[in-house]
Write a protein that binds this DNA or RNA. Structure first.
Length: 437
RNA sequence: GUGGCUGUAGCUCAAUGGCAGAGCGCCUGAUUGUGGAUCAGGUGGUUGUGGGUUCGAGCCCCAUCAGCCACCCCA
């Protein structure tokens, strides 16, 4: 017999986990649509050349496959952003810009799996395509704040930065592009390994002590957003692109405030680098309150990626929620619904009245309740109750000779054990009202 | 992709190279239409998988698979 096992980094989700995931996705969808975003779905399979050259040096993590002997190399999508860029370019004349779209689905990355890092990962991706307005940047940040709050997260922090602030820091320190890339990688670890070890790593990689000092002084800036921006513009004075970036970020921040995003939920963090090479403007990332699991989401502005398919630049800003991480954290903390079944009512069956019980189930379903019936009428009533109880079904109903004669049903609340008789034609309405309360 | 830790009953975990165990769970019952609590009885294993060393392997060695941790990177 073949021993059953699943592929490393790919997870199965039994009903209790799946019900939580559906809750997460339904909540996110509701918030996205509240902000007027429209759904998009694309295939998980793309031509290899669509994905190649878009995400930087992480291409070794892309799963590639052959096309059943066909002549094209195929690949599983690595994220939802590159497929979005492909779709935008391919259907340009059917899309009205600016386009707000969301997509929820899985991507694949050939990483070494770990908690919060999987090879099949679901993401909820949200983008505003075709606008360079800082209001668009602010809008997606307001949206993510809204969504996390609605899911029940508190105390999270959105780190905000701008690619041209980072590269400005590299420029004023006199680093070339290649050295700069290494510097970004190092400072991205600040929260994890601390400033001293980052400084060591910089110097080990050929950055002079004076350069490291200058970089660290800018990158470690913290405090009120306006103070940080002021200090950055002092430190980066003379670098025109950095000055523009600071002005742009300042504008985004003012819109965020207007949109009601609480000031304590975000901060300007010049240390935030982010790996994907396609970002060109604002970048942001959300850290959970206790920071146990990496970032909950990440994103930013990428004004040139779509141009690689469209032949003209189409400015876009967006981000992706990591549903796996939301799921893991919510499971650990008992957030969200903790159900193991969708059933709301269990109808017991006596052998001599099975027809009545099945008819009752049908009546209740027609009125919108989720109903299961016992399957073995010869099973003792106690067993039938036990089945309902173990499934955590809220109500069990009993329909026997006495009840049939009186036009009633016995309704037992399995959570508190209480029991009462209700008129058969009113049961559904009463239970529905109680379940919604 | 690199380095490390772990893998024993459905679950959580014991077992000096010498008979593989406990708690929980699960099943049956405590008189006919009432679950959870209690009590009585019962059920539990190719020790992840495949090799090797040894008189003898859950324990040592090799390989492999999976999970976890640190890198790397990211959601």
């Amino acid at each position: 017999m073949e021993k059953p096992r699943n592929v490393s980094g790919m997870r199965d989700h039994l009903p209790e986990a799946m019900l939580l995931r559906q809750h997460i996705m339904n909540t996110l969808t509701r918030v996205f649509e509240r902000h007027g975003f429209e759904p998009l779905s694309t295939s998980v399979v793309e031509y290899d050349e669509v994905l190649s050259g878009k995400i930087g040096d992480e291409e070794k993590l892309i799963y590639r496959l052959d096309d059943n002997g066909g002549k094209h190399r195929l690949a599983l999508r690595y994220d939802q952003t590159v497929p979005l860029a492909r779709v935008v370019a391919q259907y340009q004349n059917q899309i009205q810009f600016p386009w707000r779209r969301y997509a929820i689905g899985q991507s694949f990355r050939g990483e070494r799996p770990q908690k919060g890092r999987y090879r099949e990962l679901w993401q909820a991706d949200v983008d505003i395509v075709g606008s360079s307005s800082p209001i668009a940047d602010a809008e997606v940040i307001a949206l993510l704040t809204d969504a996390l709050t609605e899911l029940g997260f508190r105390g999270f922090t959105t780190l905000l930065n701008h690619r041209q602030i980072l590269s400005g820091i590299a420029r004023v320190s006199g680093l070339d592009d290649q050295a700069a890339a290494g510097v970004y990688r190092s400072i991205d670890k600040l929260d994890k390994i601390g400033p001293e070890r980052v400084r060591e790593e910089l110097e080990r990689n050929g950055v002079s002590a004076a350069q490291a000092e200058q970089i660290m002084s800018l990158v470690l800036l913290e405090g009120e957003p306006e103070e940080v921006l002021k200090a950055l513009s002092d430190g980066l004075a003379g670098d025109e692109r950095a000055m523009e970036a600071i002005a742009n970020l300042r504008e985004v921040l003012s819109y965020i405030a207007s949109m009601g995003v609480p000031a304590e939920s975000y901060t300007v963090a010049p240390r935030l680098a982010r790996g994907l090479s396609y970002y060109t403007g604002t970048v942001f990332e959300v850290l959970d309150a206790d920071r146990s699991i990496g970032s909950l989401l990440g994103g930013g502005r990428y004004d040139e990626l779509i141009g690689q398919f469209a032949g003209r630049s189409i400015p876009t800003v967006g981000f992706a929620f990591g549903i796996e991480r939301l799921h893991d954290l919510m499971t650990e903390r008992n957030m969200g619904p903790r159900r193991s079944t969708t059933a709301q009512v269990f109808v017991t069956i006596f052998p001599e009245h099975s027809a009545d019980a099945l008819a009752l189930a049908n009546e209740l379903r027609k009125q919108g309740l989720n109903v299961v019936t016992a399957l073995d009428s010869k099973q003792k009533l106690g067993k039938q109750f036990q089945e309902a109880d173990r499934k955590q079904i809220p109500y069990a109903v009993v329909l026997g000779s006495d009840e049939i004669a009186k036009g009633e049903v016995q309704v037992k609340n399995l959570r508190d054990g209480s029991q009462r008789s209700l008129p058969r034609d009113q049961v559904a309405a009463i239970l529905k009202a109680e379940l919604e309360a």
